[in-house]
Amino acid sequence: QGDIVVALYPYDGIHPDDLSFKKGEKMKVLEEHGEWWKAKSLLTKKEGFIPSNYVAKLN
């Protein structure tokens, strides 16, 4: 089961498979690959890669 993270900063995706998000948006982490994680937005239901240093895990 994936962790839920919250965006600390907004992110505008650079690549087509990036997931753009707004500050405060919550996402479910699907896979962790070093600095880039695959996640699904709980708001938009879209999936893509996010920079892990832009988010914090919720406990």
Rank of each mutant, 00 (worst) to 15 (best):
E31Y: 09
K40N: 04
A39T: 04
H33G: 10
A56R: 14
E47V: 14
L43A: 10
Y54E: 02
L30K: 03
V5S: 02
P16V: 09
G13E: 04
E35D: 12
S41V: 03
N53I: 09
G48M: 00
E32S: 13
H33A: 09
L8V: 07
V6F: 09
K23G: 05
K57M: 09
K28M: 15
S20K: 07
Y11Q: 01
K28T: 10
G13L: 03
L19C: 03
Y11W: 14
H15Q: 09
G48W: 01
G2S: 11
K45V: 05
Y9T: 06
V6N: 02
H15N: 12
I14G: 09
I50D: 01
L42H: 04
V5K: 00
V29P: 02
L30Y: 07
I50W: 01
Y9E: 07
K45D: 14
V5L: 05
L30E: 04
E31H: 08
G48Q: 01
F49S: 06
M27E: 00
M27W: 01
V29W: 02
P51V: 02
D18V: 09
K22Q: 11
Y11F: 13
L58F: 10
T44W: 03
E47S: 11
Q1K: 14
I4S: 03
K28P: 00
E35A: 13
V5M: 05
K26Q: 11
K38L: 15
A56D: 06
M27F: 12
W36K: 11
S41M: 05
G48Y: 02
K45N: 14
A7I: 01
E31S: 12
L19E: 01
L43I: 10
N59M: 12
D17Y: 13
F21I: 03
K45F: 15
A7C: 05
E25F: 02
P51Q: 03
I14L: 11
G34V: 05
F49L: 11
I50H: 00
M27S: 00
H15K: 11
P10W: 08
K28H: 09
S41C: 05
D12G: 08
L58A: 08
N53L: 09
P16D: 10
I50E: 01
K26H: 14
A39W: 02
P51N: 06
E35R: 12
G34A: 06
K57Q: 08
E47M: 10
N59A: 12
S20F: 04
A39P: 00
I4H: 05
A7H: 01
I4D: 03
P16C: 11
W36R: 15
G24M: 04
V5W: 14
Q1V: 15
A39F: 01
P51K: 05
K38G: 02
K40I: 13
T44R: 03
G13C: 06
G24C: 11
A7W: 01
V6I: 14
